[in-house]
Design a protein around this nucleic acid. Structure first.
Lengths: 268, 268
DNA sequence: TTTTCAGTTCCAAATAATGAAACTGTGTTT
DNA sequence: AAACACAGTTTCATTATTTGGAACTGAAAA
């Protein structure tokens, strides 16, 4: 996974800073990295200079930079999945009244790309961009089940198989058995495998050629419902996933170059 | 602004892909870039391989990659401003009932980091991450007014001074005059300079040492209100900006390393 | 079949990255 | 006050990577 020359190393540094999940000092990074002092120093300089990192001179700490936020906005907007799925998620959330997720696979982890909450109104970035494990979530298993063989081998071998709950699948063999089942019935289930009390159903989003684009899920809690109730939504979720897949495939980006008022935002 | 060796060039390529605002083919990028074919090709390969770009094999197009979304999430979460400002924005939005923005300066453009809408419920990523001009927005001018001299020279000279409306300030001289006024009274005003019918007041967020961190604004439309009404909010906005500034400065990231259930998200 | 063209690979020359070691400046101990 | 410790910064000869013109490939058009 590592080592695309200078660029790969720079990305590693970015990930490392992000992984700390808090502002981090030079010395801390130096310790947790394999780079020699001068090398790491120059990377941090350059990345900060580029806005990929930001440096707080008061505290002498680094954090991921604002330029990433700008670029991520572009990534989300231009993605062939998220903007298309948006209205479908709205509808599904309205109909079910439950939490709804759209996820994609990013280096064999689940990346949540969009979300609708059950009750609460909004939570912003703290949702989109978050990552989770693939082997013990509904969307993760739904996606892995429809990877081609080579990609699945890679993905399955890179899971941590950490036991989050009693019901977590903790071996590649157990996971593969579940994936087989998922493939045959077309949807995945998370039966409190990641968090106690949280259950979920998920369907993959596929192109007609069988390429896996992502997954959507409906999540509930065992306090308010049981699996039988949740599974009544499966046909609906599956249909939505199919629609998203069809639109994503058919879709070509609108030809118009963004003109002055194409994306008004009334922000000043 | 350019040329930090290989890393700088790679970032340029990322920006270029993002700037197209749609999936883009190799040939298009080649045309709009100064890189020779082989060089650009290798950059695209590497960046795609790293997940910074994503490649659609069906259409042979590149878009900004998912890894950016993951990194941006970290940037937002770890930022010393956005998470702190969040509850204040909630409050300000509730009190005023108007649209509220939090912005920071990113390569002399306004980058909207968070937002609360007036009426509508949610709009997600289409908000955070968006960029706008600095010379003709309330937050932009509020921030520029509190840059140090060198930074201001750079920023002022890099504005486009495009005439969006009759009232847009279209010269550096006019802008500097307004910035002078803003500095002395402590808040900025956008009087339909960016969009007809849209007016706004904005205050800078400063540390006690005078370092400018960002700005917040309250926006209204001329249909529903006039400037006198909007300006009644100035003292409140200023106080909120001061509170955010104080907290951002005092704040140190919580010591706890993220434990298993620190950030439960009930997502599966 | 020939032509065209987008996309890909090659390799010697040019350039940039490397990292050990020396340095700086700030704060702390003797 | 001098000596020390330490995080962060700079230097520079060596080494490794990037570079890009040109040649190649394969698919589609003439």
């Amino acid at each position: 996974m590592a080592g695309d020359g200078t660029i790969g190393k720079a990305c590693d540094v970015l990930d490392q800073v992000a992984a700390f999940a808090r502002p981090v000092r030079f010395a801390e990074l130096l310790e947790s990295s394999n780079f020699p002092k001068a090398t790491l120093y120059r990377f941090l300089q350059t990345l900060t200079n580029q806005g990929m990192l930001s440096y707080d001179p008061d505290r002498q700490t680094y954090t991921p930079g604002l330029r990433l936020v700008r670029l991520a906005h572009a990534a989300w907007t231009q993605s062939s999945l998220a903007p298309i799925a948006r209205p479908f998620l709205d509808a599904l959330s309205r109909e079910t009244g439950e939490t709804v997720h759209l996820a994609q696979l990013d280096s064999n982890q689940v990346l949540y790309v969009d979300k609708r909450n059950a009750a609460q109104p909004i939570e912003m970035y703290s949702q989109a961009g978050k990552v989770g494990p693939a082997y013990c979530t509904g969307v993760g298993k739904a996606m892995m089940a429809f990877l081609d063989e080579a990609a699945l081998d890679r993905a399955a071998s890179q899971q941590s198989y950490h036991r989050f709950t009693d019901k977590t699948l903790t071996s590649e063999a157990a996971l593969r058995a579940d994936l087989h089942l998922i493939r045959s019935r077309g949807y995945a289930v998370d039966d409190e495998e990641h968090e106690p009390g949280i259950i979920c159903i998920a369907c993959p989003i596929l192109t007609s050629g069988g390429r896996m684009l992502g997954a959507i899920s409906v999540t509930g809690s065992t306090e308010r419902m049981n699996f039988d109730q949740l599974e009544t939504w499966v046909p609906r979720v599956r249909r939505v996933a199919e629609q998203i897949g069809a639109e994503a495939q058919a879709w070509r980006f609108p030809e118009t170059r963004p003109s002055a008022d194409t994306d008004r935002m009334q922000a000043t």
